[in-house]
């Protein structure tokens, strides 16, 4: 009888421990979730569309650095795109996907921006990065801009040059059109007349 009581006590004790552990873990997860959207990647479009919800929270975005690396005092300002062209741009062979670019300005502290060096452009596919930082719906520090203040930056993929091979079919069209133009010029056989 005593044993049964003991064992039921220990079961109750274990259950209480589990309950406390679950409660503590739950609280921690919820608390973590309120300041950071976990280690889950957030799409930039979601941030723009639900800016009020994400305002002031820690977020993580992944995308291509495009345009310029602008030095602004203690920060470097970059633009990160996570649209379909962030992995393969149109100049590097992607077909138009029916959408435009989707990007956001990211303020990176100088000490964390050293590795960012090659933004994407016509000539190259830029570095692909992971940014963790605070999202601002209307950043008071930066004139109401929607931006991210980065806390961590990780280079996921390095940049690479896009090889632009001459498209010979275009060259052929130029040759054909040039021939037609010369023929027409000869046919006109007079200087272009001006009105009056």
């Amino acid at each position: 009888m005593k044993d049964t009581k003991k064992s039921s006590k220990s079961i109750l004790g274990a259950l209480a421990l589990v309950l406390v552990a679950v409660l503590v873990a739950g609280t921690l997860i919820l608390a973590h979730g309120s300041t950071c959207h976990g280690s889950e990647k957030t799409r930039i479009n979601d941030l723009i569309e639900n800016a009020k919800e994400y305002d002031g929270r820690n977020v993580m975005v992944e995308g291509e650095v495009v345009g310029d690396k602008l030095q602004r005092g203690e920060y470097v300002l970059i633009t990160v795109n996570d649209d379909p062209y962030s992995k393969q741009s149109i100049p590097s062979g992607s077909k138009p996907k029916g959408v435009g670019n989707i990007g956001i300005g990211v303020w990176v502290p100088n000490n964390k921006a050293k590795e960012i060096s090659v933004p994407g452009s016509y000539e190259r596919q830029g570095q692909y990065v992971r940014i963790e930082g605070v999202f601002n719906r209307a950043c008071a520090e930066h004139g109401g801009d929607m931006d991210i203040h980065a806390e961590n930056v990780e280079i996921l993929k390095s940049a690479h040059l896009i090889r632009h091979h001459i498209q010979f079919w275009k060259l052929l069209i130029v040759l054909v059109l040039s021939s037609i133009t010369i023929a027409l010029l000869l046919a006109v056989r007079r200087p272009a007349k001006k009105i009056e």
Binding site: G67, Y85, I90, S92, S94, G98, V99, N101, G103
Partner: peptide, 10 residues
């Protein structure tokens, strides 16, 4: 309606 403006040429 231009797509991928950020990779457009000069």
């Amino acid at each position: 309606l231009l797509q991928d403006l950020d990779h457009a040429s000069n």
